[in-house]
């Protein structure tokens, strides 16, 4: 149980790190709406997907692409966990 929690934390931390690197920010609210707040446009999303693929060693296939998965850090974390579980 503790192991699973720390794994989730680690995903969360790494997603946060990827986002902060990409958006050139020191910190980001985990609930922030990345689209509504103007952090991500189409090109930034493409860059984010590439960065996530690199960071987590996953491949985001076009047929799996649901833009709503990228709306906030929480959803990104959930999407990564889902992909890692497959």
């Amino acid at each position: 149980m503790a192991n699973a929690t720390s794994k989730q934390d680690s995903v969360e931390t790494r997603v946060h790190m990827v986002l902060c690197d990409l958006l050139l920010m020191d910190a980001l609210d985990p609930d922030v709406d990345l689209f509504e707040e103007g952090y991500l446009d189409s090109m930034a999303l493409v860059n984010l997907m590439m960065a996530l693929e690199q960071e987590f060693g996953i491949v985001i296939a076009p047929e799996d692409l649901d833009m709503e998965d990228y709306r906030n850090p929480e959803r990104i974390k959930a999407m990564i966990s889902r992909m890692q579980a497959v």
Partner: peptide
């Protein structure tokens, strides 16, 4: 619209 990913949604 760009901030709402409209270009990507249109292409998709």
């Amino acid at each position: 619209a760009r901030a709402a990913l409209v270009p990507m949604r249109l292409l998709q």
